[in-house]
């Protein structure tokens, strides 16, 4: 499994990334939506397509919602699962992100167990850790 962790906080990238690595993910990072689109482009050239993107909402240059819209507009990335991982937690915003094409939404702060539960919901956990 491959994941792209998109957050302008490197502390948060490290936290999310290390939990995902524990579940066997190969993790790449990006600091904003534009960097993430670039990383997807570069990855494509070498055959690296993520199974999952964990996406912060508020970031410089391109925010997480714009990134979701951009990914959803690209048919080549249809199989990529998009999960918002953000402190934004107004109901209206969750609805907006889901309508734009995000599959799940994890609110900060969260525990490693909460991230694992979301991966289980998304069918992205290897069998041996899903029990």
């Amino acid at each position: 499994m491959r994941a792209l962790v998109i957050d302008d906080s490197r502390a948060m990238r490290r936290i999310v990334g290390s939990i995902l690595k524990d579940f066997g993910f190969e993790v790449r990072e990006a600091g904003d939506g534009q960097q993430a689109l670039d990383a997807l482009q570069e990855g494509k050239a070498e055959g690296w397509v993520p199974d999952l993107c964990c996406i912060d909402w508020n970031m410089p240059v391109m925010d997480g919602l714009q990134f979701v819209v951009a990914v959803r507009a690209n048919p080549e990335l249809r199989q990529v699962t998009l999960m918002m991982v953000t402190t934004e937690s107004e109901t209206g915003q969750i609805v907006k992100a889901l309508a734009a094409g995000a599959h799940e939404y994890l609110i900060k702060p969260f525990t490693a167990d909460a991230l694992r539960d979301k991966l289980a919901l998304l069918g992205l956990l290897p069998e041996e850790v899903s029990a």
Partner: peptide
């Protein structure tokens, strides 16, 4: 501060937006 701010924002009337830290 960002996580505190986002959660505090959600108990206030919205919609509103959060600045970068």
């Amino acid at each position: 501060a960002n996580v505190l701010g986002g959660n505090i924002k959600s108990v206030l009337p919205g919609p509103s937006s959060l600045g970068l830290p």
